[in-house]
């Protein structure tokens, strides 16, 4: 991806997070906890598990539809980050060639099974992470972290990071454009120019930090970042969390997929 593409990508995801749907309105803490439990449950399956992972797709599907998130956008973003998992996973079918099963005359090796399992887990974990931020504003996540006990200092500067992310990306983009406009092909994209470029950007950033600090002082800043309570855990959030935990428990410990499969097999027979 080029710089511009990445920039607009983040912007789009950020805009989605300010939506007004049921999932957007849930308390960020509930969503953060729910997501982490989901991830832990998904990765707790053994490396040869495939069928039992299927019901878990229900959660991302619900987030996408109830949260009105464009599916293609999320899938595109997932493909961009997939190389590492695929690169490591692809060695499984090469190195592990024992036969796992013979289905309709085709023998399937355990390596392919575990590779497929990695891919499914990748799809689930990454989509849920992206959907968390697509349905929860970043400042919401930060406040959730703060109230879950993360240090105030960490959260304050995380909020600053988020606030100036877009400002600095724009500034970087302007510099990059100026470089590309005058570099005619490859020359000018080398290391020396790059170093100088970040050097300048760094100095501007420090100056900006100074101006921000001045603005903070002007409005009575005395060392502590004040924060208002914004959301309360209400019945809706607790209900969401309990349903989530119940589903995770059922999906984890009862082989639903297999059960359904058997019953259908039985009917067909």
């Amino acid at each position: 991806m080029t710089f511009d593409e990445k920039y607009f990508d983040i912007g789009r995801l950020d805009r989605l997070s300010y939506g007004e749907t049921f999932v957007h309105r849930l308390d960020p803490r509930a969503k953060v906890i729910g997501t982490m439990l989901f991830l832990l449950t998904v990765v707790s399956f053994s490396k040869y598990e495939i069928a039992a992972l299927a019901p878990f797709f229900l959660y991302p599907m619900l987030l996408v539809t109830v949260g009105e998130i464009p599916v293609r956008f999320i899938i595109k973003k997932m493909i961009v980050v997939s190389p590492f998992a695929i690169f490591i996973g692809i060695f499984n079918p090469i190195l592990d060639t024992r036969t796992a099963a013979v289905i309709l005359g085709v023998s399937v090796s355990t390596g392919w099974v575990s590779f497929l399992s990695i891919l499914l887990k990748f799809t689930l974990t990454i989509s849920v992470a992206l959907l968390l931020i697509a349905t929860t504003s970043f400042s919401g996540v930060c406040h959730a972290l703060r109230r879950l006990g993360f240090p105030a200092l960490f959260v304050s500067q995380l909020l600053f990071l988020y606030r100036y992310l877009f400002v600095l990306m724009e500034e970087t983009m302007r510099i990059i454009r100026a470089r590309d406009m005058r570099s005619f092909g490859k020359r000018g994209t080398g290391l020396r120019v790059f170093v100088r470029l970040i050097g300048i950007l760094f100095l501007r950033t420090v100056d900006r930090a100074e101006r921000i600090y001045y603005a903070m002082l002007s409005r009575g800043f005395a060392g502590d970042m004040p924060a208002l309570k914004r959301s309360r855990m209400v019945l809706r959030d607790l209900a969401y969390l309990s349903v989530m935990i119940a589903c995770l428990w059922v999906f984890r410990f009862f082989p639903i997929t297999e059960g359904i499969g058997r019953r259908v097999q039985e009917l067909l027979r």
Partner: peptide, 24 residues
């Protein structure tokens, strides 16, 4: 300030406008 980006340093408009009063 000249550049509102330097002055609006909080993550939402509400938080930003509330920053001063809260400090008071």
């Amino acid at each position: 300030f000249q550049n509102p980006d330097d002055q609006l340093f909080m993550p939402t408009v509400f938080d930003d406008v509330a920053f001063g009063p809260l400090n008071l």
